[in-house]
């Protein structure tokens, strides 16, 4: 099995450690991973702002970069959802369409494709799980609180393999953090307020770390935490699943 690692633009630039942890974790699990260097962005920042007609070149680049792999894996639910729903290619339409079905967010790749039953990791801390909306309601990484359906959580399933970890429970288990791409500046007041409220739910319930499968939300919450000079940290789930002694 050969996996193409997609490290979304802002992860590449701001959170390389999440990309490294993803790579190392997959390799530990016996997967052959490559990082195609011509990759850039999934196109979502443009599309969610209403400019999906500008994402053509981005899409072509993505299709060229990843068409040869069995799977594409990325440590970002939001980018993955966007690609699954919107990746198109004019040059090679069938390749893009085929690729859409082989793109996975890291957590779902571990639970659904690799179907891992155990993991060696240790992280002796109190951790709050942030359910990112696109991972939750788009990729169904967990059951959505609005639906009348049996509960499950793929991130928590994985985190429960980690030695020493204590998962805290939240008052609102799957409310949005307010990042929302350009929303976070276009609607600054509401976005910040949503971020503050989300962070305070974790802090009040005793989290030392906030984790999740989407760094964009974590970046937003980290921005709030840092401004509040809080000691609570954010960490991508790959880093916890890859954490050793």
């Amino acid at each position: 099995m050969k996996v193409g690692l997609f490290v979304p633009c802002y992860v590449d630039q701001f959170y390389p450690q999440a990309g490294i942890a993803t790579l190392e974790l997959l390799e530990k699990l016996g997967v052959e991973v490559e990082f195609p260097e011509r990759q850039t962005c999934c196109g979502q920042p443009m599309a969610n702002s209403g400019f999906s007609h500008l994402t053509g070149d981005c899409d072509e680049l993505f299709t060229e970069s990843f068409a040869g792999y069995d799977y594409v894996v990325a440590p970002s639910g939001s980018c993955v959802l966007h690609l699954k729903e919107h990746l198109h290619s004019k040059k090679n339409p069938s390749a893009a369409e085929d690729l859409r079905g082989r793109i996975y967010e890291l957590v779902e790749f571990l639970t659904d494709i690799l179907q891992i039953k155990s993991l060696k990791a240790r992280f002796p801390h109190k951790v709050g799980v942030h359910q990112s909306c696109h991972g939750l309601r788009g990729l169904h990484l967990s059951q959505m609180s609005e639906l009348v359906a049996p509960g499950f959580s793929k991130p928590e399933y994985l985190l429960n393999f980690v030695e020493g970890i204590e998962l805290i429970s939240l008052n609102r288990k799957d409310e949005c953090c307010g990042f929302g791409g350009t929303f976070c500046v276009a609607e600054e007041a509401v976005s910040s307020k949503m971020g503050k409220d989300r962070v305070s739910d974790h802090v009040q319930n005793g989290a030392e770390y906030i984790t999740g499968a989407d760094l964009s939300c974590l970046m937003h919450m980290e921005g709030i935490l840092k401004r509040q000079k809080s000691g609570v940290k954010v960490m991508h789930i790959a880093e916890i699943l890859n954490a050793g002694e």
Partner: peptide, 23 residues
């Protein structure tokens, strides 16, 4: 002046990007 900074900080840029590390 970016509205982001009104209530939030940006992450500290790391010394190298993922692609630099990978290279």
């Amino acid at each position: 002046l970016n509205p982001w900074y009104k209530e939030r900080e940006m992450p500290k840029p790391p010394k190298e990007s993922f692609r630099e590390w990978y290279k």
